[in-house]
Design a binder for these strands. Sequence first.
RNA 1: GGGGUGUUAGCUCAGCUGGUUCAGAGCACCUGCCUUACAAGCAGGGGGUCACUGGUUCGAAUCCAGUACGCCCCA
Length: 876
Amino acid sequence: MSIAKKYSPKEVEEKWYSSWMERGFFRSTPNPKKEPYTIVIPPPNVTGVLHMGHMLNNTIQDVLIRRARMQGKEACWVPGTDHASIATEAKVVAMLKERGIEKKDITREEFLKYAWEWKEKYGGIILEQLKKLGASCDWDRTRFTMEEDLSAAVIEVFVDLYRKGQIYRGVRMVNWDPQGKTALSDEEVIPKETMAKMYHLKYEVVSDNAEKSYITVATSRPETIMADVAVAVNPNDERYTHFHGKSVRIPLLGKEIPVIVDEYVSIEFGTGALKVTPAHDLNDYELGQKHNLPTIDILNDDGSLNEKSQLYIGQDRFAARRNIVKDLQEADLLVKIEEYPSVLQTSERTGAAIEPRLSMQWWCKMDKMAKPALESVMEDQIRLHPPKFKNMYRSWMENVRDWCVSRQLWWGQQIPAYYLPDGSFVVATTAEKALELGRKQSGNAELQLTDLRQDEDVLDTWFSSWLWPISVFDGFKDPDNKDILYYYPTNDLVTAPEILFFWVARMIMAGFEFRNEMPFKNVYLTGIVRDAQGRKMSKSLGNSPDPLDLIDQYGADGVRAGMLFSSPAGNDLLFDEKLVEQGRNFSNKIWNAFRLIKGWEVDESLPNPNETAIKWFESRFNEAFVQIEDHFEKFRISDALLTVYKLVWDDFCSSYLEMIKPAYQQPIDKQTIEATTAFLEKVLKVLHPFMPFITEEIWHDLKERKQKEYLIVAPWPKKDTFDKKLNARMESVLKVVAAIRNIRNSKNIAQTKALDLSIKVMNQDGYESFLSIIRKLANINEISFVQDNVDGAISFVEAGDEFFIPMEGNIDVAAERERLQKELEYTKGFLVSVTKKLSNERFVSGAPESVIANERKKMADAEAKINAIEQSLASL
RNA sequence: GGGGUGUUAGCUCAGCUGGUUCAGAGCACCUGCCUUACAAGCAGGGGGUCACUGGUUCGAAUCCAGUACGCCCCA
């Protein structure tokens, strides 16, 4: 049989993914005999396409779920998508525009019809892409945040919270997107560093004096002066003390407004005098509330000025700014213009500059719900990985603000509030129920459905995704159903730190509020995937590789491994294609180890010459496996992979296989091949969660397997004891091998030329079983034990023993002397430091026994080494 | 402005309970090899004042304080 020299992932991946699907390995149903292990996917946007962040995130989830499955748990990974109201609506609007249809020209119903069509066409592409990555989700459980049942849950929750007094309607300052004409959540606002201009304007102080005096106010938004209601100064600012209690006139407009004092005003910033414009700045709004000032909103919802501004009516805010600056200049009321670096708030979707704007919105109170959510994390009932995010989480939860849940959009769950003809409203799950309530509330029994008008707004997308861990198991529709009782609370959630607050925290709140229980036990926070220069990957920068291209090029296993090589939890991942290349090379390495083993002929009559090697690898595997499990338990996924990587590459391939490898075209004995096959199987098991495809392939190529005997469900290894001494001994033996190879290299001796070796041991005991390994790996012919130094040989010391390679007089005495001299000096220096330590009274009395014993051993070793080197020098 | 967090090899990062698993890994680099599993490979090698200053300690990359610089969150 001939096996390809290079591993080719393509057919292998398709073959095994559909085989896994056919056999239902991803499927999960409640099984009381098994421990459940559950992950709910952070639902990607339904119209989204896979990007590198998804790749990292879902690879980690798949690693966790596959390991749990092999551990014999009832592993359930629920997939699904998010309706992403603003993002999807923006895409639909753009699509319609291309077809020459404006949103404002069609009805809500027509728009939603287009939107659903769009969703049916493009929705779920991303889930198909996840399959290419190898994601072992239970696809039969795929959910969508706007499907009927989940929408019903959202409405039910809204009504419930409203009845509990947790939801209210109110005028508040929101982030207004004048282009999208909707309120945005704080998270949908992107700050951009820009250079802004600071305009210094003169406000005339009202007084009886003939001589005019002015207060100069610095502002970046001169077009809002018509909405000014006061000028504020710091009470401790001596420059303005004599203006306290006076009034000033708004430039151009001439309207009188008071001068107020407040500690809030920074003396250093600008001129120390602040114009107060409550309708158009959040801080000013709060200042205005505090001082009982009126609020004058001079902007329309599209960002143009309204009649309240009295000037520049109908002009866009930026046009108005240009014009007012010109007019102020002409009126000699503009002192100067300064440039300064500032942060411009922009809309994530439309890119428009955000206006802080007062508007009527629906709000959800947070303070009560935040409490148990905060405690559960601070008390480690829910663990964040890495834990450094606890601090961030706390400061956010302690200063949590009410949540603006309404959006002026059509795509989403329409708010179940119904207005009566008298302007009051009722909240109910259906129009019929609303009518009933409405009749009661108004006392008008004649009220008809047509008299009710449902609120136009939809709910924030997060108002459905915060219910995700409950709603995917129908926990609202049927609170005691088998699934929710079995799978909830889920185990691990894998997501990005940027949505820790507005998704993770809110899910925790919802968990306690609606099920009295946390939604998950662990939150693994991944980093942001950046490019090699540290820039965030984004479409506009064009610095993000297409994940599917990468899979095509390097194989899904290679990409998965590559992503994980450099992504400790919570750290950003500087993505470099080099890493994926390394992942692919690793696949190939495994493939070739398999080829080697598969290629051997077995001769059952042969004795087993590899007892020591076999014993050692068994022990070494167990040692590494303990580390791997430890890494997993602490969510150090990257470290777990790296440990497997080294176990496979260094220990299994470079050491073990080289030790047992028969000479070319020679057969292998039965015991060795059996042990080796078993080792490879074990290695494949620990590799499987990371690299599912290649491992499943080799698993089946290695042996005939029964119907359901797949690696994906093979039992995960168990922790076992290991021989620490044996492992240390082998490490030392391999160092001897390396030293001999080094001598070969530096003396330009060909690998194929066999050398002799003499060993001067302090204690010969136990060496015998390693000699054949040294012979094979270092290509040694004769090994002899000696009492005295060997003349004309190159020597080195390892673990107290001295080794000599005879050079048949072919030795550069001067160079050798120099090398030994250098090492002697170094060792002597080392001895000095150890001796110093041991002669320190306080060290000997203060340090624990084991540390002192260790220092003593170091001293003895160093002394022996010095002795050996000196002898070697003498015999040169 | 407030809080958080980081600074270890050319690069990206480990280093978990202070002490030989303590100065490590991968990549990159250098040298030599196309040696019948693998050149996507093999063998070997060089490279670090652990940001700086002080403190605690018998002992500090590790704990504490300050400084500098970077990033993140909030305002």
